[in-house]
């Protein structure tokens, strides 16, 4: 049997790699990929805790389903925003998207 801690550390690593991608990559599309990695890490955590502490009740899984829905919505809107910004400013560089700067 795999110990619960393995899943948690696996998820923590995945989360931090994704976080680094979000924080450090220039390209907005790659930033979005980082966010997807982070969301996946969260889902692993949720499922692991469900499996070890909550099964066979279904509640824990419901959260995963909702997170997947939210992730799908986020990806669709995020990519649409990137394409819209690209069309207007010919760039997907997050550093150059600073129109809100005062």
């Amino acid at each position: 049997m795999i110990p619960l801690s393995w899943y948690l550390i696996f998820a923590a690593c995945l989360f931090c790699i994704g976080l680094f991608g979000v924080l450090a990559r220039k390209n907005a599309v790659t930033i979005l990929m980082g966010i997807e990695l982070m969301l996946n890490a969260v889902n692993i955590n949720l499922l692991a805790f469900w499996r070890y502490l909550w099964a066979p009740k279904a509640d824990g899984q419901v959260f995963v389903a909702i997170v997947i829905v939210a992730a799908a919505a986020e990806a669709a809107v995020g990519l649409a925003l990137i394409i819209s910004a690209y069309r207007r400013r010919q760039t997907v560089n997050a550093n150059e998207m600073d129109m809100l700067k005062g």
């Binding site: 979000v22 930033i31 997050a94 550093n95 600073d98 700067k101 005062g102």
Partner: peptide
């Protein structure tokens, strides 16, 4: 002080 989101996020984390 750049107005760049990523910088702010790094600081926040």
């Amino acid at each position: 002080q750049s107005g760049r989101v990523q910088m702010y996020m790094v600081l926040a984390v």
